[in-house]
Design a protein around this nucleic acid. Structure first.
Length: 416
RNA sequence: GCGGGCGUAGCUCAGCCCGGAGAGAGCACCAGGUUGUGGCCCUGGGGGUCGUGGGUUCAAAUCCCAUCGCCCGCCCCA
């Protein structure tokens, strides 16, 4: 069994689970389109350096979670740990930003992080996300969040909280970070070991530490709000008030900082109490400096991503659909039954028949179990007369009809 | 990367603490009862290296060690 085991943290999606996945994928497609977002697909792998530059050299993602390998040409390659870097790279590589000043894009697919597996956390996981390039204005932040909310609404997911914060401009953010470092240095020895490390590597993250030892200092720490200029405040205020205005409940969380280095201004997270430790099932924010830092024009952008596996944990059950509409059973005439099935398929019906040479009884049991509503029974005697039997599995009503007239009879049988 | 819990049939689990006679139950699956008719019922049947490896013992599902996997918390994030 151990050699017949999927790689740790990797999961099969079995036929019975696929209806729910397809439902999600369909909603992603239709709601994105409704907002005018276009799909983009980028490779599963990129040069590792891309993520060092975008996500940040001091983040855990780059530090210890990337799947890295050297290809046969000696290049350092990474399995994508997220999508934004690849999307920005594609935009620049193909010069798309010269063709249009605004791009609305969405993506969906697997991503990889070498983490300890847990419920809702896998090494191969799926993300849906959307990015809007070309607007520095808060209207685009609001649109991106509304897109996310529209998807949740369409899926029937209602028990969640949307948390919102701002990190200001890169300059303000840097200034704030320096203030934070200065503040926490004073009490360094009293902080948790993790936070002492964060102080050097990623000080903002001290703010969302769960460690009890850190809490009193976090409460007294300087607030980002005080480091912001007028424009940043107005930007945040606009986002907040217009979300409230359209009835989206928002919780301002001044300690929400998120783990990627490229965020500026608006950051947000969707969290659900149903998920346990991995309670964030979506998140995003503005990243105005990223495109330029890649060597492109100074194009502002905002985006977000959902963790699809976590969304799935929140998704209400779907009623299963039967694999076929018709079961063509044979009573001593298997070849004729196969012929009848092919006839029905040619007419567009989903029809299956027995492949195990089983008894009629077993065939009907199978049909019932599969939830197939109508059986076409091809019996030797009736076939001699050019007829077949139709049987409604719901109530056992059964009748004989000429094979010639099968299609109208089937149509009628399926109405019941 | 750290701490804890759990791995027995396809699934849910009992048995393990207090080692010993055939490795069990329910559900699922297959067949028969109806030699051409599903669901309910009855009868029978198939299916298990007790996660894996090692150790202790006359004897290990049961005790010990290691290892792998899953789950929970930390961490991280979607």
């Amino acid at each position: 069994m151990s050699d017949l085991q999927a790689v740790r943290g990797m999961h099969d999606i079995l036929p019975e689970e696929l209806p729910r996945w397809r439902r999600l994928e369909e909603v992603f497609r239709t709601i994105s389109a409704r907002f005018g977002y276009e799909e983009i697909r980028t490779p599963l792998v990129e040069y590792a350096h891309l993520y060092v530059r975008s996500v940040g050299p001091d983040t855990d993602i780059v530090h210890k979670e990337m799947y890295l390998f050297t290809d046969r040409g000696g290049e350092q390659i990474a399995l994508r740990p997220e999508f934004t870097a690849g999307v920005v790279r594609a935009l620049l590589q193909h010069g798309l930003l010269h063709r249009r000043s605004l791009w609305r894009l969405w993506y969906y697919g697997p991503a990889f992080r070498y983490e300890r597996p847990q419920k809702g956390r896998y090494r191969q996981f799926h993300q849906y996300g959307a990015e809007c390039f070309g607007s520095p204005y808060p209207e685009s932040d609001v649109e991106i969040i509304q897109l996310a909310v529209a998807i949740l609404k369409e899926l029937g997911i209602t028990t969640y909280e949307l948390q919102l914060n701002t990190l200001g401009t890169p300059v303000e953010r840097r200034r704030y970070q320096q203030e934070l470092v200065a503040f926490f240095r004073e009490v360094r020895s009293q902080l948790s070991a993790e936070s002492q490390q964060r102080l050097e590597r990623n000080p903002l993250r001290i703010l969302d530490s769960k460690h009890p030892a850190d809490q009193p200092f976090i409460e007294r720490a300087p607030q980002i709000w005080d480091s912001l200029g007028r424009e940043s405040r107005e930007h945040f205020q606009y986002v907040y008030t217009s979300l409230r205005a359209v009835g989206i409940p928002v919780q301002v969380n001044p300690r929400l900082v998120r783990g990627l280095d490229y965020y500026t201004h608006t950051v947000f997270e969707f969290i659900s109490p149903q998920l346990g430790a991995q309670n964030a099932f979506g998140g995003g924010g503005r990243y105005d400096g990223l495109v330029e830092s890649f060597g492109g024009p100074p194009v502002p952008a905002v985006g977000f991503a959902f963790g699809v596996e976590r969304l799935l944990l929140l998704l209400p059950e779907q009623p299963g659909q039967p694999v076929a509409q018709l079961y063509v059973a044979s009573a001593g005439a298997p070849e004729a039954a196969y012929q009848v099935a092919m006839h029905l398929r040619a007419a567009g019906y989903r029809a299956v028949c027995d492949l195990q040479r089983r008894s009629l009884k077993a065939q009907l049991r199978e049909a019932d179990r599969l939830g197939i509503p109508v059986a076409v029974i091809v019996g030797e005697a009736e076939w001699q007369r050019g007829n077949v039997l139709l049987r409604l599995l719901s109530n056992g009503v059964q009748w004989e009809c000429p094979f010639q007239d099968l299609l109208p009879h089937v149509r009628q049988a399926l109405v019941h």
